[in-house]
Write a protein that binds this DNA or RNA. Structure first.
Lengths: 329, 329
DNA sequence: CAGTAGCACTTAAAGATTGGGAGTGCTAGA
DNA sequence: TCTAGCACTCCCAATCTTTAAGTGCTACTG
């Protein structure tokens, strides 16, 4: 456990570095602790021994280490009250009841991104664990129909089905009924095999144009995007940060944001709001990810803010919690 | 009109610069024209007077000007045959018939982006001109339903409707029937007013819970995204180009790609494949946009490649044309 | 007169040099 | 336990230097 003075010192260094991105020297802290710079240097080198501070070179000021940020977040930081302005902007979203929920989530995260200049990420529920709850069909013309697949978590997808020959509506209906009976409750990724081994034999007996219909539906389910729905905003924001002021690094970051697999690593499977500093997250060692999961109407998803390690932790935490809370009503 | 030698010279300079991104000096052209560097310098300064070439500084080699590229594209370049490799990769897409059309488009453009290292953009048909062709409703539970809106161009959207109170299924059906009767054929952006002034009065008389239902449907249509569907791939590709090797410029570019309004400027309203070099396009003065429109099943859209002005024009043109052609079958 | 050889000149890009400035660690003394 | 002082370290920005690539011009040639 750190002494009170050490705590104050660390707090100030972290917060100053968050604000300025420049290593903090001993002199600038004299006023704060009411002692000489030499004393502060001693304390600093103690904190460095503990691994809470680092130097960028032998004679530079101190910078918080990953462990330093972690200590700050765990023991020093207090979540900040929502500032009037922040609150105001978000309220315009949540008070607008005509917005669809998913739009409200996206919009509010966009605002957070704009307010903080970090990157906002909204990850929809992965459909892997989704189970089919209903299949509906809308005939469009004689060789086309629209299949609508609804999952138990409220996820909806549609597919245009082109059939190679004309099929009577009653046959389509019959097939859909069978599918609904047999498939409902099946997890999305198991539907294909169930179609083949359970549905196919049945419709072969009952439906005359079974082949055409089977193929059409098979394709519909087979291309069911197993993908997480990803929305991002403000990816360019963090590119202006001084810590990434270098073309190579910027390119790396842009590539990461472009790579869906990379972004998906941000998806959360834990309850509540969590902070992943630097190497604690799988996205980028020089960044911090703060994320939280929401649950609403059986759907769930992740919202996250990605920024530099010197992130305004207190502010972001509060903003995310505020949004999560409002989503869930 | 340029002489034969001048044409060869310009052709070589453009193509060399496209390949290397470095100003072309007179010496490197001696072999080609079988004459001394001094002669070439004379010719070059003539082409510069015409505005076809430029220098980056007083003693640098020559670089094609915008006008130079334009001349090259209009009078010198011949579309390149599809290379075996390029063709092969694209064929894997178009021979896979289980792909939905829109996925095939996206995938093939992704391939082009990967092959060329430029950025691919796919702009879906703007739904502004779409007309409602059908409205379907799937009740989910007593206070929720799923509205599916199908347009004449085959565009499909769905909305979750939450109603403030329980509504009987027969009333919903009745409402949908009325909507279908009155709304079908209406352009999307006029639906709202038609709902209010034509549908509302009717259901007020016929349906008891008209208010709840009206609100639900009104919201559904109101949030119909009037947005162009945008897909991009390889935005980071062009960031590695030597001409943009500077943090400020990279940030600018990333911002542009992030800004939907900016990207929408690429949407094409002209038939056929066109090249917009530098200031000829509205996207970025240092880039070239090659785009083409496709029409299929009444849907239309734009596919485009964005790259540096020193783009492999011959190759990209061929690739785009190839894709357009295959889409339209 | 088109083409050539030669030369003085220009510029960018890359490397080397320099002079602060900001900061540290350490030692000795209050 | 804290402080003052000092030698030392390292970065950073500015300046200068060098080199390579290329040009324009002029005078010469077949």
């Amino acid at each position: 456990m750190l002494s009170e003075r050490e705590t104050t010192l660390l707090k100030y260094i972290v917060e100053d570095y968050i604000k300025t991105a420049r290593p903090v020297g001993s002199k600038s802290l004299c006023d704060l602790l009411d002692c000489s710079s030499a004393t502060i240097r001693n304390e600093m080198s103690f904190l460095e021994e503990l691994g809470l501070l680092e130097k960028t070179h032998t004679s530079s000021g101190r910078v918080p280490s990953e462990k330093g940020y972690r200590y700050y977040v765990d023991h020093i930081m207090v979540p900040k009250d929502l500032s009037g302005e922040d609150m105001l902007k978000l309220q315009t979203i949540f008070h607008n009841h005509s917005l669809v929920l998913s739009d409200a989530i996206t919009k509010s995260m966009e605002i957070v991104s704009d307010l903080t200049n970090y990157t906002a990420i909204v990850l929809g529920a992965s459909s892997k664990e989704n189970r089919v709850s209903r299949v509906e069909v809308v005939p469009l013309d004689e060789q086309k129909m629209l299949a609508i697949i609804i999952t138990d978590k409220g996820h909806v997808e549609h597919r245009n089905l082109n059939m190679e020959e004309r099929v009577s509506i009653s046959e389509i209906k019959q097939t859909v009924d069978i599918i609904n009976k047999l498939i409902v409750g099946t997890p999305i990724d198991e539907v294909s095999s169930k179609l083949e081994f359970e549905v196919k034999p049945v419709i072969e007996k009952v439906v005359s144009q079974h082949e055409v219909l089977y193929n059409a539906f098979y394709n519909a389910f087979n291309t069911f995007t197993n993908d997480t729905d990803i929305k991002m905003h403000g990816t360019s924001n963090i590119l202006s940060l001084p810590e990434f002021n270098d073309t190579k690094r910027i390119r790396e970051i842009v590539s990461k944001f472009e790579d869906k697999e990379m972004v998906k690593k941000i998806e959360s499977d834990e309850e509540g709001t969590h902070i992943y500093i630097g190497s604690e997250n799988d996205f980028d060692d020089d960044m911090t990810v703060i994320k939280t999961t929401y649950h609403v109407d059986g759907m769930e998803g992740t919202i996250a803010i990605v920024g530099p390690k010197r992130m305004e932790y207190d502010r972001v935490i509060t903003l995310l919690d505020y949004i999560k809370e409002h989503i869930e009503r």
